[in-house]
Design a protein around this nucleic acid. Structure first.
Length: 581
RNA sequence: GACCCCGUAGCUCAACUGGAUAGAGCAUCUGCCUUCUAAGCAGAGGGUUGCAGGUUCGAGUCCUGCCGGGGUCGCCA
């Protein structure tokens, strides 16, 4: 089915066409002046400019055509040529009936259900997971759900950073080398200890790498040994990797961030030699200053684009190499038509290089779209990016644990949970904490940097995840008390109901904005507005005590549709709603 | 030095192909729990959208310059 604004756009576009004007000027959207009208069309002004006519006359001509259409209860021309529109309650009720029957609430399914791989999370197995890893995981998870809902075959790949210099840096440290030799991977306690140890060892190793040329050389040598699968180094690498992955899995699982593929850089290693050989044969890859590179610069570049390095002078591969080989693998094994990279914006030059190399060489055929859906940096209170080395960056699991604890305390304080089982309390506290953390992140634009503030990320009041859960839970509770059974009678619309109903019709528009821009914050914003509008409605209309049976029934149906929409929107953000809280 | 991003209320953030009176939350202040969950609702104050020009019927949004902040720029990821 089409969304309400799509339907109206089609009608108004037809009227533009009937007046000999371009149909696409009939674009209808929700009015930004709800005091004046429900919807607006601004196309008359643009069309008039094009046709060199008076905009108000153009608007009048369009309105004259629309007058015969029974959809509208009001048609007005305002200001320089805005067309203001209201629709009849009958039309609105019919649209809502159609929406309620649709199991996707009016959201269309993609015509070509192509395969899309999303690259998010991307933790480096050598480093501890901290709050800086939140954004990519949370955003990627949400976009994957959005794409799935739109009908695509969307797969999330964690794409572990496990084949680069950081692992060599760790093994250059004698203590790490020794301990990595004997970790019992079946002992989860030992695995945890070991990964904690690696978390503290990495900053040391990184500092030594930077300051001491000998250690740097050693680390690079060890990196080559790992990549060449020298038994002693490869065995230790494998242990570090497996131990780290176990902890990473737990971290993501705790946040309801999931992946269809748990691949890493190392998985494509065997593709690299043949790939580079082939590229050399075709003269895409050349030797340059001892390294093997793919030149990617173009004549029209306004900035310097360095070549993509496939093999360093010392024979080691870099992440550009594994990224290119990964594209090769995804095209070959999955037939992807699009790959989305949810990675820090600061790596945009790297992706520019990789994407160019992939297209120049044909590794990504012409139809394959490569997109760096970059996210902003999570900054500290000083406005500067978190640094792993600076220390003091909160660990992911600590933050979640503190959030859960806060939610538990809130429940006790409100004395709401006294009759809940311990298991349910725990489940609710976890859902509340996740909602708080995820919503705090997802309400921001994907691309903008933002300042990490623990108190704000775990706040439960105002524009927060728990507020959204709370509204949904209130509706669920209300429907339980009313013993509501879905019926098919149309809504009876009064003034108190209309703002909420009109907002419900906008769900597909918010979804489309999120889908087209890989931008969950549009859905986050919508969900918040919906919760807020419901809360207003809830405060002004007492439903259970409503005397008029038809009105009561209609409002219960409205509540049911609201909670369905809210829960769907939250689900698309990766946020689960409890039954009560 | 080159290139990219950002600058909106005291703070943190929104603002849909350029649209009408720039919106939320937090914080501050005032009301509202003997009716469906007060993690709530209603209301108040708070703005020269960094500065200066330009494009146009119309600019937070597009263009130019400047100021301020951040980032990136061949062998880390």
């Amino acid at each position: 089915m089409n969304s309400l604004t799509e339907k109206l756009t089609s009608i108004v576009g037809g009227a533009f066409g009937a007046c000999g004007l371009p149909q696409e000027r009939g674009f209808v959207r929700v009015s930004d002046r709800p005091d004046l009208a429900q919807f607006q069309c601004n196309g008359a002004m643009a069309a008039a400019k094009q046709a060199k006519k008076n905009p108000r006359e153009v608007a009048q001509a369009v309105v004259d055509v629309l007058k015969s259409d029974k959809t509208f209860s009001k048609l007005e021309i305002a200001g320089p040529g805005f067309i203001n529109l209201n629709i009849t309650d009958e039309y609105l009720a019919a649209h809502m009936a159609e929406t309620a029957k649709d199991d996707k609430l009016g959201i269309a399914t993609a015509e070509k259900p192509a395969t899309i791989i999303l690259d998010y999370g991307g933790p480096n197995v050598a480093k501890a997971m901290h709050v800086g890893h939140l954004r990519t995981g949370i955003i990627g998870e949400s976009v994957r759900r959005i794409l799935r809902f739109a009908g695509y075959d969307a797969k999330g790949d964690v794409h572990l950073g496990d084949w680069g210099t950081p692992m060599g840096m760790l093994l250059a440290d004698p203590e790490v080398y020794a301990r990595a030799g004997n970790v019992d991977l079946d002992d989860s306690e030992a695995v945890r200890d070991f990964v904690d140890f690696l978390g503290t060892a990495y900053p040391r190793a990184a500092a030594a790498f930077k300051e001491n040329p000998e250690i740097q050389a050693l680390a690079q040598q060890k990196t080559v040994l790992i990549q060449n699968r020298e038994p002693e180094h490869y065995r230790r690498w494998k242990i570090m990797r497996d131990a780290s992955v176990e902890v990473i899995e737990k971290n993501f699982a705790a946040l309801d961030v999931s992946f269809d593929l748990w691949k890493g850089e190392s998985d494509v290693h065997d593709l690299i030699a043949p790939m580079v050989g082939d590229l050399k044969k075709k003269h895409f890859a050349v030797e340059d200053d001892g390294a093997i590179v793919v030149p990617v610069k173009r004549d029209d570049d306004t900035k310097e684009i360095p070549p993509l390095i496939l093999y360093k002078r010392d024979g080691a591969v870099m992440y550009g190499t594994t990224d290119l080989a990964t594209i090769l693998e995804r095209v070959r094994d999955f037939g992807v038509s699009r790959i989305l990279y949810f990675v820090d914006q600061r790596q945009s030059l790297h992706f520019e290089q990789v994407f160019r190399a992939a297209h120049i060489t044909g590794i990504a055929p012409a139809g394959v779209e490569l997109v760096h859906a970059g996210n902003g940096t999570m900054n500290g209170p000083d406005g500067k990016p978190f640094k792993t080395r600076a220390g003091g960056v909160m660990r992911l699991e600590d933050m979640l644990a503190m959030g859960v604890e806060k939610a538990r305390a809130r429940m006790e304080e409100a004395d709401l949970a006294s009759d809940f089982s311990a298991a349910e309390k725990e489940d609710i506290a976890r859902k509340v904490a996740i909602a708080a953390i995820k919503f705090a992140d997802l309400q921001n634009q994907r691309t903008s940097d933002y300042i990490f503030d623990f108190d704000r990320m775990t706040a439960f009041e105002g524009k927060t995840g728990p507020y959204l859960l709370y509204q949904a839970v209130r509706i669920k509770s209300l429907l339980r008390k009313a013993c509501y059974e879905p019926a098919s009678s149309p809504l009876t619309i009064h003034d108190e109901d209309r703002p909420l109903i009109l907002l419900l019709t906008q769900f597909p528009d918010a979804f489309a904005a999120a889908l087209n821009n890989y931008a969950p914050h549009h859905l986050a914003d919508y969900a918040y507005k919906l919760a807020q509008e419901f809360s207003r409605f809830y405060a002004s209309c007492h439903i259970l005590s409503e005397a008029n049976a038809a009105v009561k029934e209609s409002r219960l149906a409205l509540c049911a549709l609201t909670v369905r929409t809210l829960e769907t929107a939250l689900g698309l953000l990766g946020i689960a709603v409890p039954e009560r809280m």
